[in-house]
């Protein structure tokens, strides 16, 4: 059952360059899908478009974003917001800036439950404490009363993960959730996200530039280049035999712990040129 289907999504900066060039991708209910690509490929833009938080300068030119069968782009602002708030959640990139420094942790987890979903305060509090325990935070009651500056980066990311799962969303968009963390914390957080995703049966769109991270969390994988999906495949198949030449080059460029002496291999210029030619053809066709 497809839960999220993005079809031919085309986004540009108003009177400026294209950001997404007809992106299509689908996430089945309960599926963990990685979305990889280099910086500027448009990975985060897709996540933002789905969650309705595109920057003001960006405009959707064409395409559909079907969330559980309903096209978000055809809804009024109010209905879209309500639908996204009920069905989706975001695990943001930087835990240091994603929590409001002026508010306590508790309300930042429970506000969606009480103010959007209409839970009573006590039930929401209990739920928040339960979730903090699930993300392995010691002494949840104390943390709920803390301010963000009183917690470490790793703890803040756990809080954000707990907050994302609070309303039992059907889809979570994780936007490079481990990039801002140091390597040891990264591993734990990845394991946590993978475990929570599996336990709660939530669909996950995991945006990252790190193929190694994808292999730990995701089953399916979309490779993005210059605002186009160049490959949509199974993660294991991808690591065995990548389909698209760009994917193969990207994989070859990933440094390996097992072979630390091999020098980094950049993506060959022939591959880049071929993909760029495709992009140029697309741009020419779309004015």
């Amino acid at each position: 059952m497809t839960f999220l289907a993005v079809e031919g999504l085309t986004v540009r900066i108003r009177r400026g360059p294209w950001l997404l060039r007809g992106v299509s991708l689908a996430v089945a209910a309960g599926e963990a899908r990685g979305l990889v690509g280099e910086s500027g490929a448009g990975k985060s833009m897709i996540g933002k478009a789905i969650l309705g938080i595109l920057p003001r300068a960006a405009e959707v030119v064409s395409g559909r974003i079907l969330l559980d069968g309903t096209d978000l782009l055809r809804l009024s602002d109010r209905d879209r917001r309500a639908r996204i708030g009920r069905l989706c959640a975001l695990i943001p990139q930087d835990p240091l800036t994603a929590l409001n420094p002026a508010r306590r942790i508790g309300p930042q987890i429970t506000d969606r439950l009480t103010d959007i979903l209409g839970w009573d305060r006590a039930r929401a509090q209990a739920r928040a404490a339960e979730l903090l325990a699930e993300v392995q935070i010691a002494d949840p009651p104390r943390v709920l009363k803390s301010y963000p500056h009183e917690l470490s980066g790793g703890m803040r990311q756990r809080v954000l993960i707990a907050a994302a799962f609070a309303a039992e969303p059907k889809l979570i968009v994780a936007d490079e959730p481990t990039t801002a963390l140091d390597v040891t914390v990264q591993r734990e957080v990845l394991r946590l996200i993978a475990g929570m995703q599996a336990r709660h049966g939530t669909a996950l769109l995991f945006v990252t530039h790190d193929l190694g991270v994808v292999s730990k969390v995701c089953r399916r994988l979309s490779v993005l280049y210059a605002g186009k999906v160049v490959e949509d495949t199974d993660v294991r198949a991808f690591f065995r035999t990548p389909g698209h030449p760009y994917s193969a080059a990207l994989l070859a460029a990933t440094p390996k712990y097992t072979d630390p002496d091999s020098s980094l291999r950049p993506v060959p210029s022939a591959v880049i040129d071929a993909v760029r030619a495709e992009v140029a053809a697309w741009d020419a066709a779309h004015g």
Binding site: G85, P92, A98, R103, D111, I116
Partner: peptide, 22 residues
Amino acid sequence: HLDYVTLARTKGFAEGRVIRAE
């Protein structure tokens, strides 16, 4: 422009409430 404000928008809060509370 800050991340916590964007995050609040994805929770389903209207712009006015996002400005006042966050």
